[in-house]
Design a protein around this nucleic acid. Sequence first.
DNA 1: TCCAATTGATGGCATATGCCACTATTAATT
DNA 2: AATTAATAGTGGCATATGCCATCAATTGGA
Lengths: 151, 151
Amino acid sequence: MPKDAFFATSACNYATVRRAARKLGQFYDDIVAPSGIKATQQGLLYQIKASGEPTMGEIASAMIMDLSALGHTLKPLMRDGYVETITDKNDRRIRRVRLTKSGEKKLAEAMELWKVAQQRLEDRVGTDKAARLRAALDEIAGVDLGDSAAS
Amino acid sequence: MPKDAFFATSACNYATVRRAARKLGQFYDDIVAPSGIKATQQGLLYQIKASGEPTMGEIASAMIMDLSALGHTLKPLMRDGYVETITDKNDRRIRRVRLTKSGEKKLAEAMELWKVAQQRLEDRVGTDKAARLRAALDEIAGVDLGDSAAS
DNA sequence: TCCAATTGATGGCATATGCCACTATTAATT
DNA sequence: AATTAATAGTGGCATATGCCATCAATTGGA
């Protein structure tokens, strides 16, 4: 591989974040793959479990994700029987999401692999630096940028 | 919008980067949209122009993107006449990519909007902080993680 | 109580990305 | 030179995300 063309550092914050996301995706996915799900799906299952039977809107909001996009990414997980939705008793528009038994098991399985990836990454970049990076990214995620994403 | 569920800070570096990427995507896209292309496409056009008639492999490598993925994302831009590929004279396996006149114009148009987004974002988070964030992300992108992405 | 406005999700269409299988070329070996 | 290995892309299939148009329920008035 041409080590040269590599550091095409961009001034664009978006491009830079995406590039890092692709790198991390390849890394985490490689390690989590044996579980049979993608790292993104593992993250989604985790979010659902951590939120305790959340509504779709709550998940989307927490992940700063478009509601319809969430619905789409949830489909393969529903198809494979890892998650299920139930209509809220008080408001039939609302659908609550939760993991099935199978989903709980799959998440636990994937988490073990995730730990390996997370640990290996932090061994390379440093736990502190990784923590600071996440903090900076969370700040970006939380900033009020006036228009978009405010809904 | 429920301001509460928002700070569902995750310990996962990958999930955190993706969440920030979605946030930035919504932001940059909203502002770049009037140009008719997505912020991701603007970034790709920029990368091509900045690389001076690069091969697909060079672009993919610089962007840490799968070669076939690059081919896919390049299609709509080729279809719309913004980029074109030419077979390398010395090695017919290689395809060099470059912007068309139309592509140059579209990029210039999008860049004007990009500047607005970039500026607005940095007005909120601070230019220094943004620079440090990009540096940290570039470091992640450049780290040798043993297996994957090394090819 | 009936209708308009609001809220929560779904479905269709489009781009973004990846992996794998396969084709086309070129480089290496014997 | 013929065969084999390595390189550069393409095409198919699948997930990740977004926007917009709709449909379903609820909520707010008049």
